[in-house]
Amino acid sequence: MIYVKLPRENFTAFFESLKNYGKVYGPVKISESYGFKEVSNVAQLSLEYPRTMIPPKKFFVKPKERIFEFDEEKMEYRETVENTEIVIFGIHPCDINAIKLIDRVYINEMPDKYYQKRRENALLIGVSCHPDEYCFCKSTGTSYATDGFDLFLHEINDGYLVRVATEKGHKVITQNKHLIREVEARDMEDFKENERKRLTEFKLELNISGLQDMLELSHDRAIWREYADKCFGCGTCNLVCPTCRCYDVVDCVNLDLKTGERKRKWDSCMLRKHGLVAGGLNFRPTRVERLRNRFNCKGSLREDMMNCVGCGRCTVYCPADIRYVEVLQKVRGEIK
């Protein structure tokens, strides 16, 4: 890894320089929450944000997008793959790890061209964070991003220690070398101390040892009914989840009845149609099956990574106040 230092007094200039690499998005306060929005100056950024409501997956797996336009009469269709370069500034480790996980699904096997293109066109800049009472990424092993970003800014006393993980990141650093200093011994100590301290700040913990088996052995337990009674089945938990990536596809025809488009949009396994096949058979007919499926999916592993990065969004934004960690603690038998 290459480490450099971005002194605090150069932060604004560095941030301004990012506009050379594409449209810059960063965490911005919206109402009482936060979201990644296009930012034109440092003052708009809220770098102390706990989490955004909608995770940065939205840049890659789009909430709604057109896949292609078609013309039935001419028997042709036109792909609508966009090609815009973007910079996502200020991503937290949990979200970086979540993107890594989605990469495994969308790039490593049968690559999704739309996703892949957008990933290639994005410069990812991480920033260090502090946990609030909903964060449990330490438990899921995703509190630190070892890779999956181009640059990562760790706040230290008088600026940032920057980890440079990719060629792309290196290019940014090289082109801004007038803003960059070498890392000194004091900076390294600062970094270590901050990281040590950060780990002691977590208030919420989830023991994931043996969780997969415990989930499976709770298949028929009343717990799912209990929470299904509370659950709205509104899909919020999925839609705000940085690792959920289900999508639905719809065709739209224009009034000429010949042309139209195929679109896809985020879907949620908590919604009725998710497991419904033509003919009316639903493989997850009630919220009991849907909730159980969701927790099993989140608790399962993709290669060695759990499908949950401990960001806390599903708990924060659940209108029924279903607490993810609490559910799993019940599954584990830690609480009644």
Binding site: E32, T236, L239, L271, P319
Partner: peptide
């Protein structure tokens, strides 16, 4: 035509509208 049978919450999230229940 296909009927919609999911709640408004879905569209709030797709549009990134702040949740008025949680926040307000």
């Amino acid at each position: 035509p296909e009927a919609i049978d999911y709640p408004v919450c879905v569209e709030c999230k797709l549009n990134e509208y702040p949740c008025v229940i949680i926040e307000k």
